[in-house]
């Protein structure tokens, strides 16, 4: 593969990363805004927020992307660059899914917590900020993890609009090299690695969030290969542990506790 092609692929990955980050940020904001509105005490507010969620969950992100890119300019004579059209479409669509996650997690907080907030005369906003959201947040992270991986894969839709993301670059490389099988396999791998990074990051976030409400995550020691050994070494505190015996770490970790 020539360096020109490599550059193309790296640029593509960078665009995919950017699309994922910007769209996720927008989706997160949308998810919180509409998820909270879904729990509003006025039914009309809940209803309108519900309409938004139903519309955006029920339409295709790809069609919406095209709509923003091609139809919006006809109405407002202003055209977004494809990149931002994509961010808008992905953010609003996945935000709608996320809003249901936020609503569910907020409603899963024990009602007695809100009552304790009332008993201390917190305003509704304070109850939300200080009690409900902090307690609901750790519950939101695993479903958010799923959604952001879905979103990552959804960014490949932009290649149809000619944005040079990973999928777009891969296609060019494939045409240049006439090596379909290999290139498609590598492309899958790239997405897999990106998804894996997101997943790990979210796990770390979840652990931190749970510790923050005094509920440390029960961590199966054998789950993290590298870190598990490191932790073991720290845990036994000086007593040398032969990394070759890493296979026995579940047993010795148990004995440690």
């Amino acid at each position: 593969m020539t360096s020109g092609l490599w550059e193309l692929v790296l640029k593509g990955i960078w665009i995919t990363v950017q699309l994922t980050v910007f769209s996720s940020a927008l989706a997160l904001a949308v998810a919180f805004a509409f998820g909270i509105l879904r729990t509003h005490r006025l039914w009309i507010v809940r209803f309108l927020a519900g309409c938004y969620i139903e519309v955006f969950r029920g339409t295709s992100a790809l069609v919406f992307m095209f709509w923003i890119f091609f139809v919006l300019p006809l109405m407002f004579s202003y055209q977004l660059v494809p990149m931002w059209a994509a961010v808008l479409a992905l953010g609003l669509t996945y935000g709608a899914y996320g809003a249901e996650v936020v609503r569910g997690a907020l409603q899963a907080v024990a009602p007695a917590q809100r009552e304790a907030g009332v008993a201390l005369s917190f305003t509704r906003g304070q109850q939300l900020r200080k009690i409900l959201i902090p307690q609901a947040w750790p519950e939101m992270i695993p479903p958010f993890n799923n959604l952001s991986i879905e979103l990552l894969k959804g960014t490949a839709l932009v290649s149809i609009m000619g944005v040079g993301d990973t999928a777009f670059a891969a296609n060019l490389v494939r045409l240049a090299l006439q090596e379909s099988a290999e290139i498609y396999t590598y492309t899958l791998l790239i997405y897999f690695v990106l998804a894996f990074v997101i997943s790990r990051g979210m796990r770390a976030l979840e652990r931190k969030a749970k510790a923050g409400i005094g509920r440390p995550m029960e961590k199966p020691a054998a789950r993290k290969p590298g870190a598990g050994v490191l932790q073991m070494l720290k845990k036994v505190d000086g007593k040398a542990v032969d990394p070759q015996h890493a296979g026995t770490r579940a047993r010795s970790a148990g004995g440690d506790a």
């Binding site: 024990a110 007695a112 917590q113 304790a116 009690i131 902090p134 923050g212 409400i213 509920r215």
Partner: peptide
């Protein structure tokens, strides 16, 4: 309250 209802966070 009967169930304390402290804020766990």
């Amino acid at each position: 309250f009967q169930q304390f209802n402290l804020f766990p966070n």
